[in-house]
């Protein structure tokens, strides 16, 4: 079997509030293959976002390892981890989280400023990414001038602009009407099928989960595979 893109080995994570410790993830181990489209489901508070944060290098486990192509990202310093994220991970959030003062094009350009690209190359990349999400005609709009579905498409363009191997999405359709949600799911399916992006998506939505190849359910810190 080929090397997985991500391997999670015996990850534990708990939150401490005062002297109360809330265990959230207990001994989680699984692989995410290259090109996989994984849906993470589970009841609210079961730790889906927490697990996604570990996978994306936003947070580190209390113990256990997160390996990216064999490299333990837990060993990286904070700044190294930031650089790693910008190179390998694209993020899609439930509430889009675009920068309100920037235009759609500039929002997509933003993560590219961390690469070695020139200003002109950045603009070209951004334009191409916006074309991929069908928003070429909205480049100069501010987020407040776009619908929810359009904002999420800009967010997806921002996530893929630097061409990362991994996309993580935390309830990307959670704030959208059915039609826009369908749009976004089709877009993600496309990115997975056409560009081979590995996608990890947290969702509550049964329909969204069915877009994925594989669904894992998180329950009380334990993970199982759904058929």
């Amino acid at each position: 079997m080929a090397e997985p893109l991500i391997r999670i080995e015996h990850a534990f994570k708990s939150y401490r509030r005062g002297d109360r410790i809330t265990p959230v993830l207990e001994d989680i181990s699984f692989d995410i293959a290259c090109g996989e489209f994984l849906a993470l489901v589970g009841p609210s508070g079961s730790g889906k976002s927490t697990l996604l944060n570990l996978i994306a290098g936003i947070d580190v486990p209390d113990s256990g390892k997160i390996l990216f192509l064999g490299q333990d990202i837990g060993q990286l310093s904070e700044n190294e981890l930031a650089a790693w994220r910008s190179a390998h991970v694209g993020f899609i959030f439930q509430f889009y989280n675009l920068i309100p003062v920037l235009t759609a094009q500039q929002n997509v350009e933003l993560p590219l400023t961390l690469t070695g690209l020139s200003g002109r190359e950045r603009k070209e990349h951004a334009a191409r990414a916006l074309a991929a999400v069908n928003l070429s005609d909205r480049m100069d709009h501010r987020p407040s001038q776009l619908s929810g579905g359009q904002q999420q498409r800009v967010a997806i363009a921002r996530a893929i602009a630097a061409d990362p191997a991994l996309l993580v999405a935390d309830e990307p359709t959670g704030d959208l009407d059915r039609e826009s949600a369908e749009d976004i799911l089709r877009l993600l399916e496309n990115l997975n099928a056409r560009l081979g992006k590995t996608i990890v998506m947290v969702t509550h939505d049964q329909r969204a989960a069915s877009a994925a190849h594989l669904t894992r359910r998180l329950n009380k810190g334990v993970l199982d595979v759904l058929p």
Partner: peptide, 8 residues
């Protein structure tokens, strides 16, 4: 969000 995107 900026940090998530990789800004230090």
């Amino acid at each position: 969000v900026l940090k998530t995107l990789g800004f230090s």
